[in-house]
Design a protein around this nucleic acid. Sequence first.
DNA 1: CAGTTTAATGCAAGTTTATGCGGTTTTTGC
DNA 2: GCAAAAACCGCATAAACTTGCATTAAACTG
Lengths: 249, 249
Amino acid sequence: MLKQERQAYILHQVNLHNKILSANLCQEMNVSEDTIRRDLLELSTNGKLVKVHGGAMSTSFSHTTAQNETIYASDSKKIIAQKAASLVKDGMFVLTTGGTTIIELARALPAGLKATFLCGSLPALFEYMQHPNIEVIVIGDKLSRNARITVGPQAISQVKAIKADLCFMGINAIDPEHGISDNDWDVVMLKKAMIQTSRHVVGLSIAEKINTIQAIHLSPVSGLHTLITDLPADHERLKPYSDKGLRLL
Amino acid sequence: MLKQERQAYILHQVNLHNKILSANLCQEMNVSEDTIRRDLLELSTNGKLVKVHGGAMSTSFSHTTAQNETIYASDSKKIIAQKAASLVKDGMFVLTTGGTTIIELARALPAGLKATFLCGSLPALFEYMQHPNIEVIVIGDKLSRNARITVGPQAISQVKAIKADLCFMGINAIDPEHGISDNDWDVVMLKKAMIQTSRHVVGLSIAEKINTIQAIHLSPVSGLHTLITDLPADHERLKPYSDKGLRLL
DNA sequence: CAGTTTAATGCAAGTTTATGCGGTTTTTGC
DNA sequence: GCAAAAACCGCATAAACTTGCATTAAACTG
């Protein structure tokens, strides 16, 4: 195993789990603790992670440089991301929205995945670009400042021009009767187009957004094919959705 | 086994697995490690892969694990950025390429500037987004991994659909007779479109790129209206460009 | 066609890099 | 404060790299 490869793996693990134990790493990769420590030292001097006693943590997670906004309900989103990542197979055409859950998904994607991702969210695009075998296609248009995603007619027509195998959609509010809703007109328009043009739409939602409603209606629940939450698939709170024919994960 | 054949095989393996061990290769092909090393050296000087201790990695993989991204000639680029920033006025429509000089420009823009910026470079877009009053428009298409900029027909048609007041173009090579040249086909196509569609094109080039030529011709010097370098405007090395009618800064 | 040139490869000696090991110091949880 | 875990330090070693040179085979030349 190459040194660079090892360091890339370490970095991936750190970004995925926020923290890692060096004891853990040296077992996984069959090298001595010294080597791991040297790797961590190198990575930390380059600012890629923060070394702590017993292992390392991601820079964003570290409180010393906590200018980055910490992700809300980060653990729940990591669980969702793991489930979602397992759906992506080599060669797929994947369309995604933006949002912190999608970013976690991007980090959770398996290292060697060969697929094409289409996205209009700058932070998500950055994460996709970290994967050497992922082809990234940027959806262009006006950048919505609060959503950090491109929105507008150009983006919508670009989305409509493709037929994605899979669409991952961050859900801001979902209710069995009222369906999916959101609070930004432009984003709703874009998501509608995404639902229209994708073979399989997967909604990603943390538990606390289940059974909530927001201002702008986006689609009935039936617009989704699969719903991923941080709850177990057979949780009673999700029953209304499986009754409506959604696959739960 | 022929040399070309061997190198093609190496390249294939690298692109398939993202990395290879030279020990592995010399066993598979029954040649000495020296030969493999020489092959890797040759391939890496041609930019086909990146040589590391113990083997090699694909360029895309090495980009994701790049250790120290220190900006080359950063001071010169800051000087250029300052000069360029003074050209942007409130209300302007500005089109830019990518590159480190452009990123410095983005950082050097006055705080309260109210303008619209169009760009396909992810790192540059991030910088533009830091300015609260700048409207950002993303140029969408396939993301070129080494240039970190969107390229392709969609990007070109998007560029052609607008008439920018000002275009900032990072210059990789410029020569009074041969004009502007570059080393990436897709990027050249995009820059050509930018020159066509902009009212005023400003070239940004550090001194050492003055009077150099690269593989792909982009435009005669007359395609630019202004040339900004880190040299004083009346420097004798720039005289051939002012003779050709360029405004120097 | 013989002699020369050139490219490609392997070999050997010396250097650098990466890694593991033993002993000592520091940190941490109790 | 104490025991255990982890970090640090120096050193040893093996693998990989560099350089220069010899050998071979192919290509070129008069």
